[in-house]
Design a protein around this nucleic acid. Structure first.
Lengths: 338, 338
DNA sequence: AATACTATTGCACACGTGTGCAATGGGACA
DNA sequence: TGTCCCATTGCACACGTGTGCAATAGTATT
């Protein structure tokens, strides 16, 4: 079923049919309606390849997704990003072409070259790593690019607002009466770790207290969270709550506290960051800060659409995080009431 | 840069160029080489839309992925499926079109209709649910379909070999000297749960013992694993190992054992099933049975390719599972040596 | 040497859709 | 009533690639 078939049925030429289906003002309203009716009834759907050939527009976005085989820390976020991306593009009539990035591919074929070959109008990278050899090529790409959770000079960037997230958790602790809040930070080489840590410091200073104890630092692993917490417990003054820069360290912290005979949350509250799956099944369920991964995906697509339409969208978008309430935090006055 | 441009450069017609690049035997080897050289040097890549228009083949597979918004139990497997699928299709020169399935979409647009519209040659479903209203339409689809982890009359089906997996875990326990192996099964309404449970029974009978204790049954949640284990510990005879039908129940089991003062694995070994993320960060690390998710993805694609080429591939493929060794199992003779 | 056969190339059309330009017809205005 | 203008439609070409058939040239066969 092509527009020619419809043309025959309607007694017009394929030009008129084409114009009708594209809502051209050049065609009489009556004929337009008649033709649309026929298209509807016959279940016509346009041949996208023919259309793309002549319009020179593909209506397609590309997604490059880091392969699971490579070391990555995406947890389950990846599918949520994809969810948002797919929803946003399909609701705008765009197709989504999916690729995986492996170390092998990164050295063999050009991502941007692939995009050009597939006539992709815009591309999103998920799980980009700083050792990827194609970073410069991506930065100088003439087709619109947006990278999730990875900042690269001059290209679109969408991520969570880490500052707002940390503040969200601290506000929550504060509202529960906590004042003695200790912090276990991440490694200094990780940009997000430093952002979150700085925010903690500012927050405590704003409240007129300053950081409780010096800042302990782990390396984002459960083991390091465990070790740092044991260190922390050796201090002369004890906090009423511990915030960790990510969930895995928070879980390690809980483990250390339990081993030392402290109950969570009755004796000590703990909050993490990231909303990792393990935190949901942990005991107690870990209160944490989660990112709105679907919204991040949506935003990435919106950026690309703006870019495609030659609007000048801001390069970076920070998405509002959300507090995930579970059972690892209690009010401070409950502390002595078991 | 089109074949016409190359034709001009080579002093031939576009027909010869087309034939050369497609390795037609109709063209002289010398010209063929010369033309290929030019194509190489100019960085020519064919316009896939034009090609698809005329060949009436899209070289494209589709993937429908259950949206995270809908209740699903895919954990992190989803991205590994995708990984395998993308790898297999791209290495065969196929593109991959990505869609998400939401409840809304399932009632508004036809999946198969979408596939037809996009000229997809084969389609894979990930996360299909039994309440999807389009199951019959999928079953009677004329375009090749393969569903992962969901069996539907007459359509391709790829999944893990649950029988082999259970046997793998039991063999491991057996090799560690365990003979008193208790089992916590899943809900009777879950097909995989029944397969795994039956296999446990057969195994124990084969070994001349029969099941140790009656079979306890949970509902796949951590809570139920916890409760069933407490029940189990009230028996007059105690096992040396517990196998659970999935990881979440196994984690619940560990929790119950710890609370009762039993050390895992010194006093009691525990194995799970599924290789869920939480098991990796649990304490002790959970020994379990994992599926080779990437291989499942690869197999799904292979099935589609066979189907597309009119071979008659078997409808169902069961992929070999693998044992994931961590720290929740010890040898039985260590039991009394702390 | 004439003929037949084969290897190689070009011509022309097809795939389905979009669009500039010409053609047609009808209505309004003088 | 004649002219002009505008609304509507058709004609023809383009997009880039593939392929059946004809044409040509070169080689082998008799």
């Amino acid at each position: 079923m092509t527009i020619k078939d419809i043309a025959r049925l309607a007694g017009v030429t394929h030009s008129t049919v084409s114009r009708s289906l594209n809502d051209s003002p050049l065609v009489a309203t009556a004929t337009k309606e008649r033709i649309k009716k026929i298209a509807q009834d016959t279940g016509y759907s346009p041949n996208s390849f023919a259309r793309r050939l002549v319009t020179r527009r593909s209506n397609t976005l590309g997604v490059f997704f880091l392969s699971r085989g490579e070391l990555n820390f995406m947890e389950n976020f990846g599918t949520e990003f994809l969810d948002g991306i797919a929803t946003a593009s399909s609701s705008n009539g765009y197709d989504l072409l999916f690729f995986t990035m492996t170390r092998e591919l990164s050295q063999k074929k050009s991502y941007i070259g692939l995009c050009r070959e597939k006539h992709v109008e815009g591309v999103i990278f998920i799980g980009m790593t700083s050792d990827d050899p194609q970073l410069e090529e991506i930065a100088s790409s003439d087709i619109p690019v947006c990278i999730i959770d990875f900042q690269l000079e001059g290209v679109g960037f969408v991520s969570t607002d880490n500052e707002k997230g940390t503040r969200l958790a601290l506000d929550y602790l504060w509202s529960k009466g906590h004042r003695k809040i200790a912090y276990i930070g991440g490694p200094t080489v990780a940009p997000v770790a430093m952002i979150r840590e700085r925010c903690y410091q500012n927050y405590m200073v704003e409240k007129g207290l300053g950081p409780f104890l010096e800042i302990f630092r782990g390396d984002f692993t459960t083991k390091s969270g465990y070790a740092q917490t044991l260190d922390l417990l050796r201090s002369e003054k004890l906090p009423s709550a511990i915030m960790a820069a990510n969930d895995y360290m928070a879980l390690g912290s809980v483990k250390a506290l339990k081993e030392k005979g402290l109950r969570v949350p009755q004796d000590m509250s703990v909050v993490g960051y990231d909303n990792v799956l393990a935190g949901e099944y942990a005991d107690p369920g870990l209160t944490t800060v989660g990112q709105d991964s679907t919204e991040i995906g949506l935003s990435a697509v919106r950026y690309l659409f703006d870019k495609i339409q030659n609007k000048k969208p801001p390069l970076t978008r920070l998405i509002n995080p959300c507090l995930v309430l579970r059972d690892s935090v209690s009010s401070v006055h409950n502390k002595d009431v078991p």
